[in-house]
């Protein structure tokens, strides 16, 4: 408070553009900007300048990062448009943003409906992404499905809670994906499909466990885009496969797999 009494708040535009304010100052300056068109314009220009400093720093990210981000994106819901303009186009919505689009405030965190998840939030990056995907599972469900969803979320949480939980993913020639987060010690995995849609004619996507010298074992049927929890995976599990089967599934695969994913990368068979 006394900060602004003694100095011209405009002088904070450059430090603000460089992210060089402490959080309380940042908040105070943003409040000031709402009523100060000059500051807003100035910060916008200086922010563009600051961003140019980033031009010299680009570097290729680790390849595995892409898979983890894509896996998370497939199961993470998007925040609703600001101020409830849900029917407007992105462009229209954006014009309704508060004065300062550079968004000093982080977006509100997904609400943690199951406190069980909290410990993972500070764990590894993979776990953080996985937690985000968990919230996706629970988001936007009608009340009558919520209980079942929560049960499944707990199952998923159990997989993720394993200290050895690891993420892997694969992509076929047409860009469709399979993602897995698995724990070898728990013998369980959370599997997602991306881009496959629902098979025609009421048929279903069925997940199989492939083991050397053994028949494929059914791990369950995919229901639209929701993750499937597979349990009872032995250490000898070598890969997962997905086939298209008649409604209700089959005891053994009746078609060629549309996608397969080796489990070695997530800690099996080691």
């Amino acid at each position: 408070m006394s900060l602004f009494r003694r100095e011209d708040p405009h002088s904070l535009a450059a430090p603000y553009a460089l992210d060089a304010l402490e959080p309380p100052e940042r908040i105070r300056f943003e409040r000031h900007m709402k009523d100060c068109d000059r500051c807003t314009a100035e910060v916008r220009a200086l922010s563009e300048d600051a961003v140019r400093l980033a031009w010299s720093t680009a570097a290729p990210p680790p390849a595995a990062m892409r898979d983890r981000v894509m896996l998370a994106v497939r199961t993470t819901p998007q925040d609703p448009a600001p101020q409830g303009a849900s029917h407007a186009s992105a462009r229209t919505r954006a014009t309704q943003l508060p004065p300062h689009v550079w968004g000093a405030q982080p977006p509100p965190r997904q609400r943690r409906r199951i406190p069980l998840f909290v410990p993972f939030a500070t764990a590894t990056a993979a776990a953080a992404l996985v937690v985000a995907s968990l919230f996706a599972v629970q988001a936007n469900r009608t009340q009558d499905r919520l209980t079942a969803e929560q049960d499944r979320s707990r199952e998923i949480a159990h997989v993720l809670a394993a200290p050895d939980a690891r993420a892997g993913s694969g992509r076929d020639g047409r860009g469709r994906t399979i993602g897995v987060i698995a724990s070898a010690t728990e013998g369980s995995a959370v599997v997602t499909l991306g881009g496959y849609g629902a098979p025609a004619g009421g048929r279903v996507h069925q997940l199989w466990l492939m083991r050397p010298g053994a028949q494929p074992r059914s791990l369950g049927l995919f229901a639209s885009d929701t993750p499937l929890v597979a349990t009872g995976l032995g250490a000898s599990a070598t890969s997962l496969a997905v086939t298209v089967e008649p409604a209700g599934g089959s005891p053994q695969p009746t078609t060629q797999p549309i996608v397969q994913l080796a489990l070695k990368s997530v800690g099996f068979g080691e």
């Binding site: 981000v69 925040d79 609703p80 992105a90 977006p107």
Partner: peptide
């Protein structure tokens, strides 16, 4: 990773009129 995922979640906040 968090930033990239945030892009996905918060893309609706982007305003092309502002930069």
């Amino acid at each position: 990773q968090e930033v990239l995922l945030e892009l996905w979640r918060s893309a609706a906040k982007f305003d092309p009129g502002r930069g």
